[in-house]
């Protein structure tokens, strides 16, 4: 089975332009969407392919799952128990920021939520840039994957944080 990267004709790297990915999805859809066939068994086969392609599209869109895919290709296990634990300093920093976010949410302090989100977004961008660099050449071997795994771990925290911050801002926008 081809990897999602191969499926969309994209190089197996972390740096990815989402607009390019979207265009690739449209192009692929033209050839594998079940509506392009009329024979029932052919339609079923295409439906299966489209399902895989759409799963792949979703995985590539999210930087966390995209990194996980690259690690998988490199033969590096990810997830609980396989990734280095975040440093105490990192955890403390995240804990403090989350507390600050919770406080800002309670006190309806929009400026602080935006500032916190911007700060985390910058940190996330740094982690993504670092991952892009680490994944740009040859995929890391299981032995030298530790630095990249640390960034992946950080990305998970940033993603969760930004989800909460965005949900809060959305809600205030709508009020």
């Amino acid at each position: 089975m081809p990897t999602p990267f191969a499926l969309f004709g994209l190089p197996a790297t972390f740096a990815l332009d989402l607009k390019v990915l979207e265009r690739a999805q449209r192009e692929l859809g033209k050839t594998i969407h079940p509506d392009t066939a009329s024979d029932p068994s052919e339609r079923r086969a295409l439906a299966e392919q489209s399902t895989l392609a759409n799963e792949g599209y979703r995985a590539l869109r999210d930087p966390v799952t995209r990194a996980e895919l690259l690690f998988q290709l490199a033969g590096v296990a990810t997830g609980d128990g396989h990734e280095p634990k975040p440093t105490a300093a990192f955890l403390m920093d995240m804990l403090e920021k989350r507390e600050a976010l919770a406080e800002a949410r309670t006190s309806k302090d929009r400026a602080t939520v935006e500032a916190l989100a911007a700060e985390i977004r910058a940190q996330r961008n740094d982690a993504e840039a670092a991952l892009a660099a680490l994944f740009s050449g040859v995929l890391p071997s299981p032995l030298d994957a530790q630095p990249a795994l640390v960034h992946l771990g950080s990305l998970r925290y940033y993603r969760r944080f930004l989800e909460e911050a965005t949900a809060t801002l959305d809600e205030w926008d709508d009020a």
Partner: peptide, 8 residues
Amino acid sequence: NTTIPTAS
């Protein structure tokens, strides 16, 4: 907003 058909 997940494109269909899909599975997870």
